[in-house]
Every structure is written in structure tokens, then in C-alpha cells.
């Protein structure tokens, strides 16, 4: 077939991802971010590598050396996950790495909890769901994974979730944030119903909505709505709420990009 000369390709398309790629390899970048403490370092590294067995080995060693299991959740597991999240945000590593690290971190948390009767201080609960009538749940799965990766407790109501189930879960779990995902123009109207029923009950929790069909204009139409463009915004919204409160206006100012 006809072909292009190598030097002609750039005039036709630019692989911006190649031209912008960072000099440092992901492993080098991670190495710079690990904590130096010699008991914590191997745990953080094992989280980054997504090796759950190594995470447990590291935790065992730290606990044997006198560290408090519950403190290790924040001081080691979350720190390791923080490295992973930062590298993902900077575009140095990709989602599957985050998923594998999150799995390893969750195993680690379970292990720490099993070692003591103490209960860890929760960071906050987020209720996630896919709109009623909609089965597209991959975006929601990513959102839930990233929230967990950032230390939030996630109550995942799954896909095709009836409006009333969302309301019940919110009443029961008292989340700091509710998320909704919809990929169809026909299903996203359920968000308005969720909004109205929450308000009827006097619950003013931020309701972050995203997914293929959803756009900022639509979400702005209901009082509790905050539009989230990418999954990585979900933990950012949750962190923002912890730091600056749950005022919808402020959240919109920060996260509405269009």
C-alpha cells in the first residue's frame, strides 16, 4: 500500500502523549516519594507494586517492631496509596496500577483491623450508584475504586439503582457525598428525582454526578448537583468537602470547568 515517509507523519498528526511523556520512569518517580522510615518504606513500596503478600509481610514486621496496627493504616497504607494517587494524577501511572494498589491496600487494612480491637477513625463515607435503568457501571466502578484508594468508605449500590434505594442508603449511612453515574440521556433524569427526594427529607448532601451522558448544564439544574468530569475528580470532591465544607456553590466554583 501507499505509505508516508517518517518525516512526513508529524505534519499529519502529533502524538502529544509521546512528546509530553515525563523523563522519569514511574518506578523512579515513586522511589522519590516513598517515606524513608525503614519499616514504612517496604509497605508503601508493596502498595505501589500492588503486591498484597508483601504488604502483609511489611505490616507484620512493623507490628512486631512495636507499631500500632491502626496507626499503620494512616501512616503506611494510606501513605503508600498517596504515592500511587499522586502519580496517577500526574499522568505517570495508569488506572490498572491504581486498581491493583487499591486491592492490596484494602487487604492491608483488613489485616491491620484483625490485629487489634481498636476501630480506625473513619475518614468519611461516600454512597455511589448508577442511575435507575442504566447498566453502564464501569465509570462508577472506577469512581468507587479511586475513592477507596483515597481512604474513604464506599457504599456501592451498584447499577440500575432505584431512586428510593439511594435515599434509604443516604439516611442510613450519613455520607459526606453521594455520587451518581449515568451514560444514557434517558436515565440521567433519575438524578433530579434523587435530588428532590433528598431535599424533601431535608438532607443537603452534595450529589456529584458524572458519566457519558451527563453534562455540567444538566447537573447545575438541581440544587445539590455538582458535576464531575472524570473519575479522579470524585476523591478530589470528597477531600474538598473535608477541607472546606459541603457548600454546593463553593464546590461548583471549584469543579465546574465549563
Amino acid at each position: 500500500m501507499l505509505d508516508l515517509k517518517k518525516e512526513d507523519i508529524d505534519g499529519i498528526l502529533i502524538r502529544y502523549n509521546v512528546s509530553l511523556e515525563k523523563e522519569m520512569t514511574p518506578d523512579e518517580a515513586a522511589e522519590e516519594l516513598y517515606p524513608k522510615d525503614e519499616l514504612i518504606y517496604p509497605i508503601a513500596k508493596a502498595i505501589y507494586e500492588g503486591e498484597e503478600d508483601d504488604v502483609i509481610d511489611g505490616l507484620k514486621a512493623a507490628i512486631d517492631a512495636g507499631k500500632n496496627p491502626i496507626a499503620l493504616i494512616n501512616d503506611a497504607l494510606m501513605v503508600g496509596m498517596g504515592v500511587v494517587s499522586q502519580l496517577y494524577d500526574e499522568g505517570i501511572i495508569f488506572l490498572p496500577n491504581v486498581m491493583m494498589s487499591a486491592d492490596a491496600m484494602l487487604d492491608g487494612i483488613e489485616y491491620c483491623k484483625d490485629q487489634t480491637d481498636e476501630v480506625p477513625e473513619p475518614k468519611g463515607t461516600v454512597v455511589c450508584h448508577v442511575a435507575e435503568g442504566d447498566v453502564h457501571d464501569i465509570g462508577k466502578n472506577i469512581v468507587a475504586a479511586l475513592l477507596r484508594a483515597n481512604g474513604f468508605d464506599v457504599v456501592d449500590l451498584g447499577r440500575d439503582c432505584p431512586v428510593d434505594e439511594v435515599i434509604e442508603a443516604v439516611e442510613k449511612e450519613k455520607p459526606i457525598l453521594v455520587t451518581g453515574t449515568a451514560l444514557m440521556t434517558t436515565t440521567m433524569y433519575a438524578f433530579k428525582e434523587v435530588n428532590d427526594k433528598l431535599l424533601e427529607k431535608g438532607i443537603k448532601v452534595p450529589f456529584a454526578c458524572g458519566g457519558g451522558a451527563v453534562n455540567q448544564d444538566f447537573v447545575s439544574q438541581y440544587e445539590l448537583g455538582v458535576y464531575g468530569e472524570e473519575a479522579a475528580d470524585a476523591p478530589k470532591i470528597a477531600e474538598f468537602i473535608l477541607a472546606s465544607g459541603d457548600g454546593i456553590e463553593k464546590l461548583r466554583e471549584e469543579f465546574h470547568k465549563h
Binding site: 502524538r15 502529544y16 502523549n17 501511572i93 495508569f94 488506572l95 472506577i142 473519575a231
Partner: peptide, 8 residues
């Protein structure tokens, strides 16, 4: 797209 980072 080229700059997304969810899957190679």
C-alpha cells in the same frame, strides 16, 4: 484519547 490514562 491520547492523553487519557485509564488504559494503555
Amino acid at each position: 484519547g491520547l492523553l487519557d490514562k485509564n488504559l494503555a
